[in-house]
Design a protein around this nucleic acid. Sequence first.
DNA 1: GATTGTGAATTATTTCACAGCT
DNA 2: AGCTGTGAAATAATTCACAATC
Lengths: 213, 213
Amino acid sequence: MPSPDRKISESTVRRLSAYLRSLEALEASGAEMASSGELARRAGTTAPQVRKDLSTFGSFGKRGLGYPVVPLIGSLEAILGLTREWRVALLGAGRVGAALHTYPFFRERGFRIVAIFDNDPEKVGLRWDDTTIRHIDELESVLAGEAVEIAILTVPAAPAPALADRVVRAGVGAILNFAPARLELPPHVVVNEVNLAMELELLSFALTRSEPR
Amino acid sequence: MPSPDRKISESTVRRLSAYLRSLEALEASGAEMASSGELARRAGTTAPQVRKDLSTFGSFGKRGLGYPVVPLIGSLEAILGLTREWRVALLGAGRVGAALHTYPFFRERGFRIVAIFDNDPEKVGLRWDDTTIRHIDELESVLAGEAVEIAILTVPAAPAPALADRVVRAGVGAILNFAPARLELPPHVVVNEVNLAMELELLSFALTRSEPR
DNA sequence: GATTGTGAATTATTTCACAGCT
DNA sequence: AGCTGTGAAATAATTCACAATC
């Protein structure tokens, strides 16, 4: 696969993800080729940006014709690391955990939830689909036994940093953090924070500045 | 309040939100002053970045001493538009909607959920706390009656774009979109997308590039 | 002595323009 | 004729360095 050495920015990867979703919609509608302009329109960016982004990883298009939809889907899946299965653990079996667990995207894209943890004795032992909720005390042994690679934190802010440390020491390489707490982890660990407060504050900031027109 | 005319980037606003949370932690621990270095450490950025960000909106610090914690909290709340109440509607009373509705941040920060909609007759009429779930057919009248300013979409991808259009025509100025669909809306509408697929793909991309070391 | 506020320098990202295929 | 791929130009964001102030 074409894989440049230079650093790829987060915004580029986010756009690649958007292109993939646009291409899947195009495939569903029967399109065989897609121009950079068409992809840009659907993904909410510009045609030169699409070409630049894709050209970072290779030459996927045909001049005069555009990009072949199905092959480009395959290429983007390979670039994004979606051609293999990822073993995922859910830490926190509350409402956010439940919402994530039922989200069909996980299975569709090969993110397989192989372990669920909570510290509530009422919840431990319950099964969500095929997965039994384990007590957080069993974290290390289960993570190792299940060869978990990605952890999703949907616990309260207070326990999040300590749990993240434990998870990393148990060999997990990536964390998706829904807890409103900053995690300080070694640089080789990939961390991605999703913070509802921040997302809403972005809206209230923008509204505040635009409203007093 | 100091309010510059030039455009403020999204990343700046995200950092302001992070500073606010850091300051609240500092306040809880009894600190009266905080240096840019301390804020940077907690918010995960650099000291010059903190100073640059804050200086965009005014001069909040004391040279040689740092920033006064409590007053700066107030200033950031004012900048982010958190000193007033925002009237919010939830579209979609599924698991994601339920998770958001119970999130305590909403009330703490003045985001008041004044309307909840779903199209499932089983759900319409149920009450979540003080709010009765209304049928989506009543969208326009309820949004207007409740003077809703922010809509949160937790519906499936298919109906999302049409619902967003309706919501905007009913006068809503900002949308937080959890549906995996791109919304094309007039430029005066503030849209913020939260896409779980994208967040996970960011992790799998990074893992894929780092693992084959 | 410590730390802010900020113009200047640097680095990163996006946009442009056009040569090169199909 | 249409559209990609890409080096060059323009713009944006971050980092630096240091004078100003407490």
